[in-house]
Nucleic acid binder design. Structure first.
Length: 112
DNA sequence: GTTGTGACTACCA
DNA sequence: ATGGTAGCCACAA
């Protein structure tokens, strides 16, 4: 679809992620009203300016890890920020995945 | 205009 | 459980 609002909505959804919690691209897309558009979200994040105030670091892939290439600038920063928010990592993978805010649905933890 | 690429996912083998 | 494939979208050339 060609919804010019897509980007804006994604931004809002992303901004709604509370500290200490993270969401996957797919969740962002779904919550934004566009299920299945995870990739679009990813691209939008990439397009975000470095000085953005959006909590882009709280967005991770479905595997529970940082989507950015390991070793890249963003990857390191994101990991650092997440740990700063109290999110525990385990071999570059997030252990706690809490998708739950504003009374919105929650996701189960794979593995557990 | 089409083609290719990418901070993704879900599904099937 | 791991690996390959197809579907999605936005953007650059």
């Amino acid at each position: 679809m060609k919804d010019p609002q897509f980007k804006a909505i994604v931004w809002q959804t992303m901004a709604a992620i509370p500290p200490g919690k993270v969401a996957t691209y797919g969740q962002i897309a779904s919550l934004s009203g566009y299920p299945g558009h995870a990739r679009g979200v990813g691209h939008i994040l990439k397009k975000l300016p470095p000085e953005t105030l959006l909590p882009w670091h709280r967005v991770i892939n479905a595997k529970g890890e940082i989507a950015l290439p390991a070793g890249s600038e963003g990857h390191q920063m994101q990991k650092q920020r997440l740990e700063q928010e109290g999110i525990h990592f385990q071999d570059d993978k997030i252990r706690l995945r809490l998708y739950q805010w504003d009374g919105i649905v929650s996701d189960q933890t794979p593995e557990t």
